[in-house]
Design a protein around this nucleic acid. Sequence first.
DNA 1: GTCTATACTTCGATAGAC
DNA 2: GTCTATCGAAGTATAGAC
Lengths: 180, 180
Amino acid sequence: MLEEGYPSVTSRRVAARAGLKPQLVHYYFRTMDDLFLALFRRGAELGLQRWAAALEAGQPLWALWDLSRDPRGTALTMEFTALGNHRKEIRAEIGAASARYRTVLFEGIRAAFERYGVDQERYPPMICSVLMTSLSTFLVLESEMLGLTAGHDETVALVEDFIRQLEGERRHPPEGVPSA
Amino acid sequence: MLEEGYPSVTSRRVAARAGLKPQLVHYYFRTMDDLFLALFRRGAELGLQRWAAALEAGQPLWALWDLSRDPRGTALTMEFTALGNHRKEIRAEIGAASARYRTVLFEGIRAAFERYGVDQERYPPMICSVLMTSLSTFLVLESEMLGLTAGHDETVALVEDFIRQLEGERRHPPEGVPSA
DNA sequence: GTCTATACTTCGATAGAC
DNA sequence: GTCTATCGAAGTATAGAC
């Protein structure tokens, strides 16, 4: 799916990679939509658990920022979004999952700001969560899918300077984020 | 392409909508990739002209902001990006076009900031252009494709307050931006 | 569960008449 | 330019034997 896009995920190719016959795919999932739905649900659940765990860590802001910058998650989300664009059931599922992620992020930022004594009038957690999500999504999109990196480093530095002021130096290296 | 995604754009359906036979599509474009490439080039060129024109207007920041928030442009870009994900020729074309858009935006912001006497150490035009593009892209993506709008209004207000301080009230209503 | 067999659809692309 | 005719490939999905 990541390599060739969702249209390339066909019952025949799925079966081939599993070393089985295409008909078995239909035996287990009936339709391809069911398969995509199951795939998405599993991935979303897994990711959400990771995000929840990040909040328990000693540096929640670093953890959330690094997680949201993981290219694999973003690339898959984009692919599913494109797929969901004309499958309303899948689209609804993605919408629901995105809303849950957003809530986790918002609550995480709000709690962290509270703990660090950040002025929440000046830095509203909701706006911060939107900016953080949009920026991380876009950076991955542009660099991974288009090969453009103009201005990325400076913008990343801006965010990370802010986090550094609150949580100090990052103690756990990010996963999957190149050159960070 | 916007309604059902790029995989639904087939020679047969293109021909049907043009009231012609599918073979004529191949006569004019040979392959479907050629068709997509031609389509993208025309759209990119058209959009770029609009952006360039926006810089000449009396309120370049408002114009750039409103243009970048036009859902149609973003949705098409996303669709082409997904398509380009497994057609390297198209991917390169999108990358080149995106770089040009970014340059126009950056230069526009830089010139405007200079004119308005903005402290460019405090508000680096390159970072502003990245933030602006990422935010507008993401807002469209989330609201149009997933139906999520949590935190959108507040974040938009933040940006528009900033622009308002520099250029005053918006004098030309935006095109295609819902509820703005 | 896993297989064979198969029906049906849609696609990209080419050849050749007019 | 536009058409008819056509090929071969790939897709989703079902029925039924083992």
